[in-house]
Design a protein around this nucleic acid. Structure first.
Lengths: 210, 210
DNA sequence: GGTGAAATACGTGTTAACACGTAATTAGCT
DNA sequence: AGCTAATTACGTGTTAACACGTATTTCACC
């Protein structure tokens, strides 16, 4: 298992060093490492490693973009993302691309060996800790699924500080329709009956609105 | 210089490993390291190191809290904070406490040796990169300084979804006064003349409101 | 080809958040 | 003691964001 070739990449030099040192001490076969997304992608195309352990957030190219390009270019390197992001959105996106692993940096040391082992065998590995977190924190996410497509579209515009009339213009509908949607959204989300509870909610959850 | 005793602490195991490995390779005298704020503080009180390199965001006790306790307890350990936070607020707080250094994790490897050298000589070291960033990114921060204490207090409550009447009750003043403050804040911040521009602004900048 | 959900829209009314002007009181500073 | 900024407060008016009910059209789906 430890003969599998691995490359690593993170724009965080200290973290990259920590990761490399750890894996080398454990006897893994690190064949390269990059300081940003572009370097990482170049390494992958050149070395065609078995596994690439990548940060999501990197300059020039994100871990997700790298995964996408690998998929379209038919590179069989198995991508493992290692990140601080706990957002469900990213987690879902990761599962859609051919990503084999997703680890949180907080628990990297405990989980990374398990992850590499599992991924080496061709099985995906998604941190249990992430699953736990997403489950405990998904009340609002579920609420979002109650909304219809139009309602979601309007919510996004509300989060961008658009007034009802502006939204109406943008969507070529009456501002009264927007008002009605707004009212319906408040009902569905069961927001407290305050004047600006909807704007407030939209602002607080704007990261989940796309 | 390299004989100075140093302890490190970060709740991020990989990063902590990267930091320790790096410093040890460079020949520094690492006498201990902690995985969270409490461990870090215990190490400091026990070992009284010359320098403590701490993350800001840690469980149980933040780097800032540790600095504060060291100050009140008369411990002369020089605190260096190493963080991903680019917020001016934290930077300012750091300068108020007896903190000797402030480094961004992104540039840690380039700057940490300089920092340790400078701090060892009893001089404070604050990353030039932070200063650059704060200057380019401080339009809103400066705007905040235009506000009076009462106005800031009200802004915080607005960001917490309080209505004018609720704020009035909380502060034992008339809701008309709150309205006036609100109007004045909008003028000072030069917000666009929209109905909820203030709530919107407060929500977007609530992290800078304390 | 009917049925239900979604999208569209209006009538009517209430309220919170503003604008703009004015003004009294308080607090800090010299 | 005197000056300035801050805080407090009201009058008056406008508008955006709601609530609640109702009604038509569109569309997917069986």
């Amino acid at each position: 298992m430890k003969h599998k070739s691995i490359i690593t990449a993170d724009d965080h030099p200290l973290l990259l060093k920590g990761l490399n040192d750890f894996l080398i001490e454990k006897g893994y076969n690190i064949v390269g490492c990059g300081a940003n997304g572009r370097e990482a992608y170049n390494l992958i195309t050149k070395l065609k490693p078995d596994i690439a352990i990548l940060d999501i957030q990197m300059p020039f190219m994100s871990g997700l973009e790298i995964a996408k390009k690998c998929k379209t270019n038919g590179i069989s390197t198995k991508i493992v993302l290692i990140t601080i992001h706990k957002e469900k959105e990213l987690y879902n996106k990761a599962q859609e691309l051919n990503i084999f692993g997703y680890i949180l940096k907080e628990f990297a040391i405990e989980e990374i060996e398990n992850c590499i082992t599992t991924v080496s065998e061709g099985q995906p590995y998604f941190s249990q800790k992430i699953k736990d977190m997403l489950n405990t924190n998904s009340a609002d996410d579920e609420a979002l699924n109650v909304l219809t497509p139009s309602e979601k579209k309007i919510l996004k515009l509300i989060a961008r500080d658009k007034t009802n009339k502006e939204i109406a213009s943008l969507l070529f509908i009456s501002y009264r329709t927007v008002e009605k949607h707004r009212s319906n959204i408040i009902n569905k989300l069961k927001l407290e009956p305050k004047t600006n509870s909807l704007l407030s909610w939209a602002k607080e959850h704007h990261d989940k609105l796309q």
